[in-house]
Design a protein around this nucleic acid. Structure first.
Lengths: 238, 238
DNA sequence: AAAATAACATAACATATGTTAAAGCCGTAT
DNA sequence: ATACGGCTTTAACATATGTTATGTTATTTT
């Protein structure tokens, strides 16, 4: 039973049994997608909010010169859009990185649930504000961090995010991104991703075998990557 | 009478006279700041939402290595935080770039107004979603655009944003950022800002004299900068 | 007017990152 | 088993951007 969505939102507000049932009831319309597929394309007029139940997806944009930038990652439990208002048309695309299960939720239904259940409204706002904080940190990363700092920072962020939905075991986690994906996400070339990954490995901070990331020295990785988890916590209630 | 806030929100929802009065009534508590000052510092526990009535401000973060990244610009009429929830503590700072007039608005008051006046709630959401769209575009800019593309893209975006609040005349607008500010905003060194500015000038696209930007060739600037204004419009209702 | 300050401009040089290409690796399908 | 395709790794080289330093210009202060 994939319950990542509820598991995530518990961090944003304390939910009753009824709240959790109401959240699960939102996830009735489910679609499955293969890797590297578009869930929603730029220009589409979306009719539903997308919710990633399982697998990894992303928000991305293609430039006219052919370059691609991944704007944000969606991990299991992540919502792709704020619950209140859908755009007239998408200014970006949503695509899968692995096999993905998506729930399509009608904005009217989710708005009604939020109106009736204050804790759910609170949790949805928390989710939105957290996504915004992560977006701000991405700007800092892309503007002012070096290539290996970017990679290290990403691994630290994923460690925190995946831990919130129970997908970290011991020192590591499954990380299904290719080096080309990492390049599109961190604004660098595939070759340089490879080089920088080797730097981190040589420094004894992280290793990647296959799809698995193992953090060998969390404190070291955090400090060399200038990772300060504050931005992931500043909206979390005491 | 500086009315930029109302003028901006009109683009997000059609507001009645009463709506506009209610918005103006929010702007009672006003502070003035000198240039290069902090309105709110990282770590602060904010008690009010900040609204830039006049002047230019920004959201920024300082890294441990001393580097600074400006995350977003606030132009006259811009709100610095979403109306619904304030953070437990700031994960970034808000600072002025010019002399700035700020209104401090209590979240309870603004929430109450939004609840009673659906068009205001709609406009506030529109404002938030627009800010998010601009944040996404910043990620694309920092990740995948060259230095001169970044500058050109910024000038195009400012042209659209300032036009919405009546601050564009003819071909240009007042742009009070120093080259060092531009570097912090676009993730590049001051020297390289200067170089890239000269490229744009040499290409006959833009000039800067003093604090004034003049766009000589809007179509040319937009296409060389890969500027597509879609992201500024996708939440605007028909 | 002189001095102080901030911003802008230019140059020479260092370095991080991009580009292209080829080789090795590994899982999957035939 | 073989071949194929995607991913990773490595190398050599090109280039964009950063760094440091100094000069220039404008603006304010005294």
């Amino acid at each position: 039973m994939s319950d990542f969505f509820v598991q995530k939102l518990r961090h944003g507000a304390s939910l009753s049994e009824d709240d959790e049932r109401a959240l699960r009831a939102l996830c009735m319309n489910v679609d499955k997608f293969d890797p590297q597929n578009d869930v929603t394309m730029e220009g589409d007029k979306p009719k539903s909010i997308k919710l990633v139940l399982e697998g990894w997806a992303c928000r991305y944009k293609l430039l006219e010169n052919g370059k691609r930038q991944i704007i944000s990652l969606f991990l299991p439990g992540d919502m792709c859009e704020p619950y209140m208002t859908l755009p007239q048309f998408m200014d970006h695309s949503l695509g899968t990185l692995t096999p993905v299960t998506v729930a399509r939720v009608s904005p009217e239904v989710i708005k009604a649930v939020a109106r009736e259940r204050p804790q759910i409204e609170k949790a949805l706002w928390w989710d939105l504000l957290l996504a915004m904080a992560m977006g701000r940190e991405s700007i800092v990363t892309l503007g002012r961090r070096s290539a290996s700092e970017r990679l290290g920072h990403l691994f630290c962020e994923l460690h925190v995010r995946l831990d919130k939905v129970g997908l970290v075991d011991g020192l590591g986690y499954e990380m299904p991104l290719t080096q080309s994906n990492l390049g599109d996400l961190l604004g660098m070339s595939t070759v340089h991703v490879n080089r920088s990954l080797q730097e981190l490995r040589a420094a004894g901070l992280v290793t990647m075998h296959g799809r698995r990331v193992t953090i060998l020295n969390l404190e070291g990785l955090r400090s060399t990557s200038l990772f300060d988890p504050t931005y992931l916590q500043s909206y979390t209630q005491a």
